[in-house]
Design a protein around this nucleic acid. Structure first.
Length: 571
DNA sequence: CGTTTTTGACCAGCGC
DNA sequence: GCGCTGGTCAAAAACG
């Protein structure tokens, strides 16, 4: 409705706006943060991962089948250096050599094999420096070399050596395949670990919340069974902890007190690895929405056209989930690796500093937006609020921030926060890796009372926080002594993500999928591995791991709880 | 000249 | 219904 008063109101605000010296051009054009082209390459061929399978007891018997030593496999010039490092003179090689020896003898051609090794053209096969067993073999080669049939023997042995080389190469391929399978298994285990971790956290929160409530009605037959059902199955959608806002938007849990228990198939889906992409998350949310009886409010629309509008509602909810990052910075905007375009600036109530609105421009229709505003009380504090999920691959520099905010948002959407008091501080016990996250609980706060579910990461409270941005020598903004530190944040994030990617290298996952697999916890791990990186940031992020749903796509952000419940924003 | 920023206007939600 | 506020649009201006 074109409220006629709009003009005067806006004009008034504009007037206010103009009276503040910080308003005009307070966000200069320095925020085109192009991708930091990381030189870090994906560690797709981790030598250790490749070699380990060969050391397993399962591999050794296979080597027995090969008549000739496998030493050449370690020195074959055709090999990928990354695939096979020159192994140390370890037990495996010795074992193989000895096996070769006996294998040759078993075939009754021990001397021939030795001759092939000794007189053969493949000098690589002579590499017996670590192989005592082959030393014995080579010691017998004089017989063949000293005979008149030496040439014939050599010719025959050359062929034999070639054949053996082919066999060895085949074995190498087989081992590579085995490595690949093991990597896949490792990835699967890692993924399952993350999933279980998140489930555990959620269940812990459920339990904690239930203990706090002490609601007698929870003991009722239905409620109890439903709750137990969900807990037993690791469902992360405990109804009691889902903020009403989400329910209204179609994300409510099926475990809501009045809701029937999940169907087996749906339980299975909830049990299985959490959604790793937007589609899956949406699907899951949609499932929930389908089970929810529409409430008044936003779901009125969904009642008219459930399938379509539930999607819309889900999208809306995902978009409204926000993650806010507060950090000290003299710069107008924190570099997060993404490209943003400013589309608006507004004076917000209670804050003389304008709020700038940006949208992601890395893809045509990327719905991600962010708001940037200085804190009224302390203008050295910059609050950046992310909202929405990226619909495009992210550069490494942006992946970590996106993953972080997405995880935080998904924690909100997964219902892993209480609904009653509206504002909670994450308890350290909820953190998967408490030792890594010695943060004050106030570093990460969740607001469910605000119009939009909001997570706030406060990076300003730790006095030792390296993210205390120094006055920038240039445009940006980071807390590192290095004048170029400004660019380190995204790179560090990117590095963290990279190191995660390496874990999934064998899965041939898409860029998105990799991101999706990356848990926030892993990100924190990687971050904390960097001694220069802020423990406070890790702590803040880690405090969100609880529901952290690794989702590449995701920048979600938010603070500001539109309702401006963030006192520091003081709008 | 294409892209980005600025900024007045518009819209929707909410409270009274 | 009206006023207030947050958020967004879009034409004009600025920028590179």
């Amino acid at each position: 409705m074109a409220k006629g008063s709009g003009l005067s109101i806006d004009t008034d605000r504009i007037g206010c706006f103009l009276h503040h010296p910080t308003v005009i051009n307070s966000f200069p054009d320095d925020h085109h943060h192009h991708h930091h082209n990381s030189n870090r390459r994906l560690n797709h061929h981790h030598p250790k991962l490749k070699l380990e399978p060969m050391e397993t007891t399962q591999q050794v018997p296979n080597t027995i089948q090969f008549p000739v030593n496998l030493n050449c496999t370690s020195h074959d010039g055709d090999e990928d250096d990354e695939d096979v490092d020159p192994p140390p003179s370890g037990d495996r090689r010795r074992v193989i050599g000895e096996m070769d020896f006996f294998a040759d003898k078993k075939h009754g051609c021990g001397n021939e094999a030795a001759a092939a090794v000794a007189g053969g053209s493949d000098k690589k096969a002579l590499d017996v420096n670590v192989n005592t067993g082959l030393r014995l073999l080579t010691g017998n080669t004089s017989t063949c070399q000293s005979t008149a049939d030496n040439g014939k023997c050599q010719n025959s042995d050359d062929k034999r050596a070639k054949a053996e080389l082919a066999v060895v190469q085949a074995e190498l391929e087989r081992m590579n395949a085995e490595n690949q399978r093991l990597r896949d298994a490792l990835n699967q285990v890692s993924s399952n670990y993350n999933t279980l971790q998140m489930h555990l956290i959620t269940l812990t929160q459920h339990q904690n919340h239930r203990d706090r409530d002490h609601k007698p009605e929870n003991n009722s037959a239905n409620g109890n069974s439903e709750e137990n059902n969900n807990i037993l199955h690791g469902g992360f959608s405990g109804g009691q902890v889902v903020p009403r806002q989400f329910m209204d938007l179609g994300l409510a849990s099926a475990a809501d007190a009045n809701e029937p228990a999940l169907s087996p198939s749906e339980e299975e889906r909830l049990r299985s690895p959490l959604p790793v992409n937007n589609a899956a998350a949406k699907e899951l949310c949609d499932d929930h929405a389908r089970e929810d009886s529409p409430e008044d409010g936003p779901n009125k629309v969904a009642r008219l056209n459930p399938a379509k509008n539930v999607d819309q509602a889900t999208e809306a909810t995902m978009r409204k989930a926000r993650v806010s990052v507060r950090a000290r910075s003299e710069a107008p905007m924190i570099s997060d690796g993404c490209q943003w375009r400013k589309y608006g600036q507004k004076m917000a109530k209670g804050n003389p500093c304008p709020r700038a609105y940006y949208r992601c421009t890395m893809a045509a229709a990327c719905p991600v937006r962010k708001q940037v505003q200085r804190c009224a009380e302390d203008r050295s504090i910059l609050t950046t609020t992310y909202e929405g999920n990226h619909n495009h691959p992210l550069p490494p520099a942006a992946m970590a921030m996106a993953s972080t905010t997405s995880s935080a948002a998904r924690m909100l959407l997964s219902g892993s926060m209480p609904s009653s008091d509206g504002l909670i501080h994450h308890h350290p016990n909820f953190l998967p890796r408490p030792s890594l996250l010695p943060c004050p609980s106030t570093m990460a706060t969740i607001s469910a009372s605000a119009p939009f579910p909001t997570v706030t990461l406060d990076l300003t409270q730790n006095p030792n926080n390296p993210l205390q941005f120094q006055r920038p020598p240039a445009q940006f903004h980071l807390p590192f002594p290095n004048p170029n530190a400004a660019s380190l944040l995204p790179q560090l994030f990117g590095q963290a993500v990279h190191s995660n990617q390496s874990k999934f290298s064998g899965l041939q996952m898409s860029h998105d999928a990799v991101q999706q697999q990356n848990s926030l916890a892993e990100t924190v791990n990687a971050l904390t591995a960097d001694p220069n990186f802020t423990a406070a940031l890790a702590a803040a992020i880690g405090s969100l791991i609880g529901g952290g749903q690794p989702n590449n796509n995701g920048n979600n952000g938010g603070s500001i709880s539109s309702g401006n419940n963030n006192s520091n924003d003081s709008k």
